[in-house]
């Protein structure tokens, strides 16, 4: 019993250390204080600044649209790649898996630099086309989709697909109606991973983005190198909003998981 109390203490302290900075920042985002530790009165000015400054709202929407575009392309490429590789000869599958592993284990800084050097230095492409940025982030994300879909394919019962063919379905039709629904959880979690990676990415973006475009990461890093106080504190509001969205997603995910488990028990 004593041991269990000690374990709970460890968890409590760790969670406190992880969340304290975010929570303190969240509290201060609702005040007019310009630094943590100074007293201030309640104010929504940071949130107003966040949503009414074009520079800030452009940057936020740009990041979100980019993340969804990158995740969609990565999911399509990675899923098709995983299905194709799974049904290819072992040697071809092994080769694809090895190359797929490179961006996964590589440092992001090297991935970003290498895509940039190929597209910009060798092919002379302009970063303003957004092509290097999207291609770079897809290079970062698609391998994770591939890794998330592949195990679902091997868990699948191959006889269902064969049964569909025997019953007269074309291979393409059977793929759509039999294979895809069974690997859907892998596709969805791959999509979610791609969104997270793109939203969090700094290094690929900084080497491949157009000069006039900023993602949240590149914007925040530039903002810490000296910017107006109103922008600095507006970013506290952004951090708070993102924290609340993530919390909401986690709660929904947890509730729906519990619902699934209950439904499973009733069967």
């Amino acid at each position: 019993m004593k041991k269990r109390g000690f374990l709970l203490l460890i968890l409590g302290v760790a969670l406190l250390l992880i969340y304290l900075p975010i929570l303190i920042l969240a509290v201060y985002s609702f005040t007019d204080a310009t630094s943590i530790g100074f007293s201030g009165s309640f104010s929504l000015q940071n949130y107003i600044t966040l949503f009414t400054t074009p520079e800030l709202s452009d940057m936020i929407w740009g990041t979100v649209i980019l993340a969804f575009a990158v995740a969609a392309i990565s999911t399509l490429l990675g899923t098709c790649g995983a299905i194709g590789a799974f049904y290819s000869r072992k040697r071809a599958q092994a080769l694809i898996s090895v190359v797929n592993q490179v961006p996964v284990v590589n440092a992001d800084v090297v991935t970003g630099f290498s895509v940039c050097i190929l597209l910009v230095a060798v092919f002379g492409m302009s970063k303003d086309t957004f092509f290097p940025l999207v291609a770079g982030q897809v290079t970062l994300c698609a391998p994770f989709v591939f890794l998330s879909v592949l195990p679902k394919l091997s868990q699948m019962d191959p006889s269902i697909y064969e049964a569909a063919l025997d019953l007269g379905a074309s291979p393409a039709y059977a793929l759509r109606k039999v294979v895809i629904p069974q690997i859907m959880p892998g596709i969805l979690s791959g999509f979610a991973m791609a969104i997270t990676l793109s939203l969090d990415d700094y290094f690929v973006a900084t080497y491949t983005k157009p000069a006039t475009f900023d993602t949240i990461s590149t914007y925040v890093v530039n903002a810490t190198r000296g910017s107006q106080t109103s922008i600095k504190t507006a970013l506290w509001a952004l951090s708070t909003i993102i924290f609340l969205i993530v919390l909401l997603i986690a709660v929904i995910g947890n509730v729906s998981k519990k619902g699934e488990r209950k439904a499973g028990e009733e069967d």
Binding site: L11, A14, L15, I18, L20, P21, I22, I24, L25, Y28, S35, I36, T196, L199, D200, Y202, I216, S217, V220, V221, T224, L235, W236, L238, S239, I242, F243, V246, L247, I249, A250, G253, N254
Partner: peptide, 23 residues
């Protein structure tokens, strides 16, 4: 609890560092 320890990964790391920097 496991979710609580994973959640920080979903928050942009530059914003988390901003919070840490202030503290």
């Amino acid at each position: 609890l496991v979710m609580l320890f994973i959640m920080p990964m979903w928050i942009n790391f530059t914003l988390r560092l901003t919070a840490l920097k202030e503290i």
